[in-house]
């Protein structure tokens, strides 16, 4: 049973990560590859604050706000770049964050990582066991997913999609596309930071190796496989990954093979999805349902 709660908690975190990435990547067309850095900053910020005596509520908020602010600074300098340059600039940012986590020993304890991160305590209630932590995570995930749903399905979200489809046209219609892009990027970073906080207090041990490019690839695979630019995509992506890949854990293979094998399969899946179903699982469904609404045969 604990294993189930453990898995379900992780699924919530991946759902948050994938949907928040989808917000700017899938809906707005911002090819930024530093989601893992926002996640890591959130995790470290939250863990360090609580370990220095701050209440969890405050640490949790800070874990979202800090990466959001950084994302806006990063965005101000690079969001006007062409997609491929933006990809490189944001990868660079992720690398810098990773190396700061590695090397700022006095704050982050470097490669040793932070151990013994306390379980969250909210209004005197401690979420110590797997079950209660799952309920906490599920509750927060539900709220954040609802807010993201409202954002993406609102006229605001529709403008994000116009920017993805054709930014120049969106500008010509009077949309301040830079402001919209910064907002979408900021919200993505905010939610990733929240997820990072939950992760830190869930696992209770974090180190810089938890937030490297390898882990970005899992989020990317979930988002792309599920369907970029659809709200249901991340749900489908998380389910698909869990159903098909969690069993890998039980393969009678030593850990040193399992890790690379997973990564290898993720990459393959990523490439195959982009090649054969670029709109992902969610995309297939979207087109079918829209076709049902057509007044006429095309």
């Amino acid at each position: 049973m604990n294993y189930f709660y453990h898995l379900a908690t992780l699924m919530c975190l991946y759902l948050l990560l994938a949907q928040s990435m989808n917000m700017y990547l899938g809906f707005t067309g911002i090819l930024a590859l530093c989601h893992i850095a926002f996640y890591g900053i959130g995790a470290y910020a939250s863990a360090l604050l609580v370990m220095h005596g701050a209440p969890f509520e405050l640490a949790f908020l800070a874990a979202g706000i800090l990466p959001a602010l950084l994302s806006i600074l990063l965005g101000l300098t690079s969001i006007r770049l062409k997609a491929d340059y933006l990809g490189i600039a944001t990868l660079g940012f992720a690398q810098i964050v990773s190396s700061i986590l590695q090397n700022w020993d006095s704050l982050t304890r470097g490669a040793l990582g932070l151990a013994g991160i306390p379980k969250p305590e909210i209004f005197g209630v401690t979420f110590a066991d797997k079950a209660s932590f799952f309920y906490l995570t599920a509750g927060i995930t539900a709220v954040l997913m609802f807010v993201m749903y409202r954002i993406l399905k609102s006229p605001f979200g529709r403008v994000l999609e116009t920017i993805r489809d054709d930014e120049v046209a969106a500008m010509s219609l009077g949309k301040n596309t830079v402001a919209y892009k910064l907002t979408a990027f900021g919200i993505g970073a905010l939610v990733a930071g929240f997820a990072g906080s939950l992760f830190a207090h869930f696992i209770t041990f974090i180190d810089p190796a938890s937030f490297v490019i390898n882990d970005l690839s899992l989020i990317l695979v979930i988002t792309v496989l599920g369907g970029l630019g659809t709200f249901r995509g991340p749900f489908l992506g998380v389910l698909a990954i869990m159903v098909f890949f969690e069993p890998l854990r039980f393969l009678p293979l030593p850990a040193e093979y399992l890790g690379p094998l997973r990564l290898w399969i993720y990459s393959l899946l990523f490439v195959l999805t982009l090649r054969f179903v670029p709109s992902g699982l969610g995309g297939l469904w979207k087109h079918r349902s829209r076709r049902g609404q057509q007044f006429t045969r095309y």
């Binding site: 954002i151 609102s154 006229p155 605001f156 979200g157 529709r158 403008v159 489809d165 630019g229």
Partner: peptide, 27 residues
């Protein structure tokens, strides 16, 4: 330069003057 992945209807609606497209208006 149209918005190919939006519906024809949405292509026009995003442009309409009275649309409330701010982040603060999502609720």
């Amino acid at each position: 330069r149209i918005f190919p992945e939006l519906t024809v209807l949405d292509n026009l609606k995003v442009a309409l003057k009275d649309n409330q497209q701010g982040l603060h208006q999502i609720f």
